[in-house]
């Protein structure tokens, strides 16, 4: 969230009302989706953990999609980070919360930062499927390293790397490629007309 301020002074980026409302609305919608996925995730990840623990990383991709989608739609510095972080925050505020407590804020922070870094590295100029996949993968990488230090502290290094690999693949495919096509579908549904992502999908009638 704070990156939105700094970016405004450094890059002279102006956030229109529709930008802010879209970021926050996406955050609430994805917060709900995250919360729902959290309830579904537990039994599935249990299965994964009891078969081959690092493979639970494959199930973690959906958590990263908010940042990728926010970045692809709004295309301004801070958008990816804010969308992901706020979505994570929303998922903890829903009654019944999440089992991970404050750690969700930390995850939202690292996941949002991972996606944001990719968009920053290409100066917010390209928003293709490769960039989206990279954003998903880096978000997964950042989050994995955080989880090594918080959840999986005592795993042997090889397993930690395997977890990171699974997570990065899941992030690239589900959050990255999935997020890219989600944005495309939203644009075709006509709800992104206020954004370049929407205008690129329009055919005149």
């Amino acid at each position: 969230m704070s990156s939105a301020t700094t970016s405004r002074t450094r890059f002279h980026v102006h956030y229109r009302t529709i930008d802010l409302v879209t970021i926050t609305t996406l955050a609430v919608a994805f917060g709900v989706i995250f919360w729902g996925w959290g309830k579904l995730y537990e039994p599935l990840s249990g299965l994964a953990v009891f078969s081959y623990p690092p493979s639970s990383g494959l199930l973690a991709g959906p958590w990263l999609i908010a940042g990728v989608v926010g970045g692809l739609i709004v295309r301004k510095p801070g958008a990816a980070f804010a969308t992901e972080f706020l979505a994570a925050a929303v998922s903890t505020f829903i009654a019944g919360g999440t089992q991970w407590g404050f750690s969700v804020f930390a995850s939202g922070f690292w996941q949002g930062l991972g996606a944001e870094v990719i968009f920053l590295l290409i100066f917010y100029r390209r928003f293709g499927v490769v960039v989206a996949a990279a954003a998903g993968a880096l978000a997964a990488t950042f989050e994995s390293v955080y989880e090594w230090n918080s959840y999986w502290t005592d795993w042997d290094m090889g397993y930690k790397l395997a977890y990171l690999g699974f997570f990065a693949v899941s992030g690239a495919v589900i959050a990255g490629v999935g997020g890219f096509y989600l944005v495309k579908a939203l644009a075709k549904a006509g709800v992104l007309d206020a954004f370049p992502a929407g205008r690129e999908q329009v055919t005149e009638v």
Partner: peptide, 21 residues
Amino acid sequence: MSFALLVQALRGASATSIAMD
């Protein structure tokens, strides 16, 4: 379902920002 929900959410977003402005 998630897609349909997002469409509804974002549809409301433009009306909300017009009202807020």
